[in-house]
Amino acid sequence: MAIDETNPRLGCGRSIDEVWATINQPPTAHENGCAPCRTARGSLAKLAEAARTLRDNDAEDPSLQPHHAVKDAIMNLARAEVRRGNRLPVFQSGQGGITISEQAITSVIWFGTDALPGVRGRRCRVHADPATADALRPAGTAGISVDLRIAVASDTDIPGTAELLRQRIITMITGHVGLNAGTVNITVEDFYDV
């Protein structure tokens, strides 16, 4: 039988690591009845208490707190990453690929939407074309679909405006993003001036 000399064992055969792993839990029936385990738990409990005290002191020590500028920088970037949304894969090759964030594409759509009189963009989601989403694709062949929800002025010709908006979005995505907007779903969900 091989003896692991690097891992100290108690008289009962248990390793000290096994006792340490459950030091924050109540003693088991074995540990209550085993003298070596009781002794080990007693010693390790002091060590656990010391470690806890050090950890708590560090957590409250003002000199160990991150500078507010560091916290602000982390939170600003975290919020920015949430706003960016998913990164849509638009080009893949064996030597790497290109992704474009949902927010980047959406910002182009907002430029097109807000420039149209009588239309106010409300919500927009962009999805990679599911037909080619997981396939390797050369540049310029990736497609996306757009779900856009808008509010319009009450005197708006809704079918005509929606078609104009659809063509504008397709043109802008082709010109400013370099992708093909195969599907642009537009939902008019409200009149903003009623």
Binding site: G97, Q103, A104
Partner: peptide, 13 residues
């Protein structure tokens, strides 16, 4: 040797 070159466009402005 160039390996994987991955580009992410995070903003268009």
């Amino acid at each position: 040797t160039p390996g994987r070159i991955d580009i992410s466009v995070l903003a268009i402005e």
